[in-house]
Amino acid sequence: MAAEPVSAIHVSDLVVGFGRQIVLDHLSLDVRKGEILGLVGASGGGKSVLMRTIIGLIPRRSGTIEVSGNSIGEGRATRVTAGNWGILFQQGALFSSLTVRQNVQFPLRENLELSQTLMDEIADAKLEMVGLAPEDGDKFPAELSGGMTKRVALARALALDPAILFLDEPTSGLDPIAAGEFDDLIETLQQTLGLTVFMVTHDLASLKTVCDRVAALADGKIVAIGPLDELLRSDHPWVRAYFHGKRSQMMQPRA
């Protein structure tokens, strides 16, 4: 057996751009096995682009990306890795012609050989874990609210209990109670399954409660990475503005 790589995701010297706009400029990042990494950055700063590049959806100009030891972007290798990750897109990206339950069952059906009964039970269990009622399972994506769409997308990302989870703003659009439940769920799964989670988020509470480390993306680079406390002490101007702005006051340790 090959030596287990220490980092689940390894990105080095990544350059991504559209036309004349450079979005990611020689970016390097390591996500350790079994950690929950939160990625923060300005709106339009390239967080979603980084995530989509890592999973091989956006072509890169240069740089290398490895996910669980397989380099991404070589067709077959990507497909092999794809069985081991779950992805939550920012807009949900649910299959519009399938019901909610079928959406959650889709990865199960494609990857495993299970009886319909068990698949139904697992799908209902996942839906309940993310806070949806079983009767929502028969709805179509067009009939869901924004937060429900997020939850279904999360349930689908979790369907296979993947080793690596990519989440693009999982808690945006959820009420604080649901967001809290989401944090608990991610923590539970991470403890049991040893998941690696790459999470783009603006939710300061999520960053504080579940993330082991936080990375800050600014000017196309990772300008700071480490536990939240370390980032709070960082003196990079953008990071300071992000964590010490008016809205982030609640994060301050009380003097």
Binding site: L118, I122, A125, D161, L193
Partner: peptide, 8 residues
């Protein structure tokens, strides 16, 4: 153990 196993 994962969710499926736990459920069974």
């Amino acid at each position: 153990l994962d969710t499926l196993g736990a459920w069974v």
